[in-house]
Computed example of a mutant assay.
Amino acid sequence: MQFNYMAPRWKWKGAEAKALAEPISKSVSELQLSLAETESSGTLSSSNVLLAVEPEQAELLDRCCFGRLVLSAEKVKKWIQLSFEEAFYLLYNLKCIKISLQGRCLENEVDTWLYMKSKRPNFPMFFKAYSHLRSKNWVLRSGLQYGVDFVAYRHHPSLVHSEYSVLVQSGDSDRLRVWSDIHCAVRLSGSVAKTLLTLYVNGKFKGEDLNLPVCLENFTVEEQTISRWSPELSREDNPQIQNKMLPM
């Protein structure tokens, strides 16, 4: 399913040209190569991963919008705080970092997967949604301040405003089950100039099948945008509508 088209809101003159000259996909490829060469390693905590990198790699991570810089007095290394989704994407999809727990390097992706799932039971569903959009070169940030799971940008947030507020759902989710919930979510997204995008992740989210990250291959993601209907856009005296009307 294709997203409904909406014109991007660039933050300053020349931002669009800069984005075209420096596509996110190119920066991600550079980051992947750099982190793999230095065998960068992150440390797991209860809710995030702390990644130690070189200053140049910290700049690359920022260009690709992975994690947030942790301020420290250390000059040789930079510390980046990654969400579980960001860290596992670098580990599993890009295969460019290693992850350790309590000083012990986890031998494989399964150990990391099981740890993250133990801390957040809904992690498989959220990671599938995150990787679905990230693999399409959308930049994702936390949507907590907007009452959603993520906000999606077509490029770096310094260049363009986010276009979508993203809600992640599964078949047994209680979210957006009643009209009032849908109305509130759409109104809130519209008030901050975003379109509400729901990602329905279909698959089995219970049982031993979730103990291996390969289960992600059995999930599918359905995209659906929800927006308010504007009567003005359908009035017969609207010139844009009249131009599209067929002759009687």
Rank of each mutant, 00 (worst) to 15 (best):
Y92I: 02
C96A: 08
L60R: 02
Q57T: 04
K75W: 03
Q57S: 12
A87R: 02
F84C: 05
E85L: 05
A73H: 06
D62F: 11
L82Q: 07
K98Q: 12
C64Q: 02
C65H: 11
I99Q: 04
A58P: 00
Q81V: 01
F66N: 07
N93W: 10
F66E: 04
R63W: 09
Q81R: 15
L90H: 08
K77D: 09
E59S: 13
L69M: 14
D62L: 08
F66C: 09
G67S: 13
L61W: 03
L94C: 10
S83T: 14
C96R: 04
S72P: 03
C65A: 15
Q57W: 00
A87N: 06
E86Y: 03
P55E: 09
L71G: 06
C96D: 11
C64M: 04
L94Y: 10
I80A: 07
S100Y: 01
L94I: 12
V53P: 05
I80S: 05
E54V: 02
L82S: 06
L82T: 02
F66H: 10
L60Q: 07
F66K: 06
D62A: 11
L82P: 01
P55I: 09
R63G: 07
E54S: 10
F66L: 12
E56L: 10
L82K: 04
Y89E: 08
E54G: 01
L61E: 04
F88T: 08
Y89D: 10
E86P: 04
V70S: 11
S100R: 13
P55M: 05
Y92C: 05
I97F: 13
A73T: 11
L91H: 10
P55Y: 01
L69K: 06
V76T: 13
S83G: 14
L94D: 00
C65M: 10
A73D: 15
S100D: 05
E85W: 01
K78S: 15
S100H: 02
G67Q: 07
I80D: 02
K75V: 13
L82D: 04
Q57V: 01
C64V: 12
K95P: 05
K98D: 11
L60N: 03
L61S: 02
W79C: 00
R68D: 14
P55D: 10
N93Q: 14
F84A: 12
K78Y: 03
K95A: 14
L94R: 15
L94W: 08
C64H: 03
R63P: 02
E59M: 09
V70T: 06
L94Q: 13
A87T: 03
E54T: 12
Y92K: 01
K75C: 13
P55L: 05
E56K: 10
L60K: 08
I97M: 07
K78D: 12
L69S: 12
E56V: 13
V53I: 03
N93T: 15
I97R: 09
V76N: 09
W79T: 10
I97Q: 12
F88A: 07
A58N: 06
I80Y: 01
S72L: 07
L82H: 04
E54W: 00
I80V: 15
F88S: 07
E74Y: 02
I97V: 15
I80M: 12
